[in-house]
Amino acid sequence: MSQQKVVVGMSGGVDSSVTAWLLKQQGYEVVGLFMKNWEDDDDSEYCSARQDWIDVVSVADLIGIDLEAVNFAAEYKDRVFAEFLREYSAGRTPNPDVLCNAEIKFKAFLDHALALGAQTIATGHYARVRETPEGRFELLKALDHTKDQSYFLHRLNQTQLAKTLFPLGEMPKTQVREIAAQIGLPNARKKDSTGICFIGERPFREFLNRYLPTQPGPMKTPDGKVVGEHIGLAFYTFGQRKGIGLGGSKDGSGEPWFVAAKDLASNTLYVVQGHDHPWLLSHTLQAGNPSWVAGVAPAAALACAAKTRYRQADATCTFSALGTSQPPGGHFALNFRDAQWAVTPGQSAVLYDGDVCLGGGIIEAADSAAPLTRAPQQAALLTPRPAA
């Protein structure tokens, strides 16, 4: 009987490299696939694609697997980057890694792998897939909760999960590093990437300004006092502390300033002092554009847990459907036992039942004391603006 063929998404990092080695050790016919998703500034000091490709080639040669490169830059710009700019221009803070996984890494990549004759794909994500006795597939947190990436994978569906392997979901990151060193991978000590999937480690505000114009406006306190000027609402996110341009208070309290609200109609940015200011705390939120791993929404009034941002502890809450909550439309509400800090429109609210990721949606509003931030969708440019 022929070996089962698996195509591994290889980024040049240690996680995907160890994933490929593990699967080969398990008897799979492994093919590495290097995805190029961004090419607007290939020669930039912040674009690591060239070095990543060199690392992938070295790893594939060492472990003895075939390797292919594919360019998904057009799909990425159309499916991910366009939405990224639309959200920022509307005053929200999107999470492009979530959309990239759903649209590129587990859609365009999966389609390409199947066309190559593969039965499954694999990535170096820290998560797990479990098949139930009824033949459904569940997305689970990684055993190493400090590295769990199920938050970024919550929009995957049954078809995608049925054909995906996450070999690293069963082991701690320390063990992955140890394996890489033991087998002599050339990238065993390579630093983990922490940047947004296409932006990398570059200065974010500088990057965003290449595509969105600055629109200065007043920076005010909740009582309406003007304390400064912002460069454009798109360049700030709820809970932001650094880069606001304000020091301690003039009354000597020294409490740090945080971004707490945006009024798009008047182009006003509201800032507050103190981490626990009422404008930064919310007990309920509303989310839209839901995606449920099982294909159906959770039961009404479900007691569960949720994250409103990555690297946040699970927060106990109650789920309630608002109207028709089946994909692709619908909305839902989450009511939290404890107030959540800086709930941010545009980010994902992801639901969990223990280690099982149920899915989630895009945060639209929260119940803080701050004014509601809403704005119509705006067209966004996909090419950098001309330099001044």
Results as ranks from 00 to 15, higher is better:
His275Val: 11
Lys107Pro: 00
Gly295Tyr: 05
Asn267Arg: 05
Gly184Asp: 06
Trp257Ala: 15
Leu168Phe: 08
Leu85His: 03
Pro133Glu: 08
Ile199Arg: 15
Ala380Leu: 07
Cys47Phe: 08
Ala49Asp: 09
Gln25Leu: 12
Pro203Tyr: 10
Gly200Ala: 04
Phe84Pro: 00
Pro133Val: 05
Gly124Ser: 05
Gly217Arg: 10
His230Pro: 00
Ala379Val: 09
Leu285Glu: 03
Leu302Arg: 14
Pro172Cys: 08
Glu68Arg: 14
Gly330Cys: 07
Pro376Gln: 11
Lys141Tyr: 00
Lys36Asp: 06
Ala294Thr: 10
Met10Arg: 01
Thr308Tyr: 04
Leu62Ile: 08
Leu143Ser: 04
Arg155Ser: 12
Gly224Phe: 11
Val59Asn: 00
Leu381Met: 11
Gln182Ser: 11
Leu264Ser: 06
Phe204Ser: 14
Phe258Lys: 07
Asp97Ala: 13
Ser368Lys: 04
Ala162Arg: 11
Leu269Thr: 04
Ile121Lys: 07
Ala142Phe: 09
Tyr28Asp: 01
Phe137Thr: 10
Phe198Asn: 10
Val8Arg: 02
Val271Gly: 03
Lys141Asn: 11
Ala102His: 15
Lys250Ile: 12
Thr214Asn: 08
Trp21Arg: 01
Ser11Asp: 02
Tyr88Lys: 06
Gln158Cys: 06
Val80Glu: 08
Ser48Thr: 11
Leu168Ser: 07
Ala287Ile: 03
His283Asp: 07
Thr146Pro: 02
Phe332His: 11
Thr123Pro: 01
Thr308Glu: 02
Thr19Lys: 04
Gln326Arg: 14
Asp276Pro: 01
Thr373Cys: 11
His283Lys: 09
Val80Trp: 06
Pro345Val: 06
